[in-house]
């Protein structure tokens, strides 16, 4: 892996200290260069921000998340998390996928405890935290249920609690509610917004839905395919807390149109 010097985009000194993820010309190719999944992506993600990634299928959203998580090696550029070059899976990030990937033989709370168990024998505090997190995601009455006894939405809630149990301050969510029906998805989006504000995590959220991306985020990374590129980083100015009605305002729709425009011209 090439270790290029750390490159930080324009910003004042205090800004730099507040950047938790920085990409400098990050690229990823598969099949010995045959497939360019991501090309020359440069970006800064400030601490505590909620960033949405939108773009059509194949534009490299999942690839970017997996690079940040250290699950795959980048082919070029520099990528730092908390100022350290990413060189493999690390403790600063937690990941959540479209499918809940819960372990069927573990109860909800045992699933939530998995991240802790990987590193040490869970203490009484770890255990009560796991139960607390399940309450936080609205599963107070399902602490000891097995995954197959839960609905798809509830399974994703367990996965979210497990993600929070890692204690990571960066949450990478790859279409976490993409397989759920629209009502459930909207509710979970609202709860996700509340929860990440509560724990103060930096969040990267992949979605195909432009409205959802804008509604949740402080910044929207708009990506375009063939090759996967970061087309623009769009700032979302709306104040928090946000209410669903925001999505009916002209300002909101203007921003949706702007993002659609960026995607359309590519």
């Amino acid at each position: 892996m090439t270790a290029l010097p750390r490159k930080v985009e324009a910003g004042t000194a205090t800004d730099v200290a507040d950047i938790v993820i920085a990409g400098g010309g990050v690229g990823k190719t598969f099949g010995g260069g045959a497939v360019v999944a991501l090309e020359d992506a440069s970006f800064n993600i400030p601490k505590g921000s909620f960033v949405s990634l939108v773009g059509p299928s194949g534009c490299g959203k999942s690839t970017l998340l997996r690079l940040i998580a250290g699950l795959i090696e980048r082919s070029s550029g520099s990528l730092t998390v908390h100022g350290r070059e990413v060189s493999g899976p690390h403790a600063d990030v937690g990941m959540m996928f479209q499918r809940a990937t819960l372990l069927d033989w573990r109860t909800a709370v045992e699933n939530v405890l998995l991240p802790t168990e990987i590193h040490r024998k869970p203490t009484a505090e770890d255990r009560s935290r796991a139960v607390e997190l399940l309450k936080m995601v609205g599963l107070k009455d399902f602490v000891f249920s097995f995954p197959s006894q839960l609905s798809g939405g509830m399974q994703q809630r367990v996965a979210l609690a497990r993600l929070l149990q890692t204690g990571a301050d960066i949450l990478l969510l790859d279409e976490p509610f993409g397989a759920l029906d629209e009502f459930t998805r909207e509710r979970l989006n609202l709860e996700l917004m509340r929860i990440v504000a509560e724990v103060g995590a930096t969040t990267l959220f992949v979605t195909h839905n432009i409205g959802e991306a804008i509604f949740l985020a402080d910044k929207v990374m708009v990506m375009t395919p063939r090759p996967g590129r970061l087309a623009r980083m769009v700032d979302v100015p709306f104040a928090r807390p946000r209410r669903p009605e925001l999505q009916q305002t002209p300002e909101f729709n203007a921003l949706v149109a702007e993002v659609r425009d960026i995607l359309g011209t590519h």
């Binding site: 998580a69 899976p89 998995l114 991240p115 990987i118």
Partner: peptide, 27 residues
């Protein structure tokens, strides 16, 4: 073995033994 779960264990930095006992064998 379930691809997604395997990825999850990797992102949690589980070692081979943990992946085997906590995931593969039970899966």
């Amino acid at each position: 073995v379930n691809e997604g779960a395997y990825e999850l264990f990797r992102s949690l930095r589980a070692n081979k033994w943990q992946i085997f006992t906590k995931l593969m064998l039970l899966d």
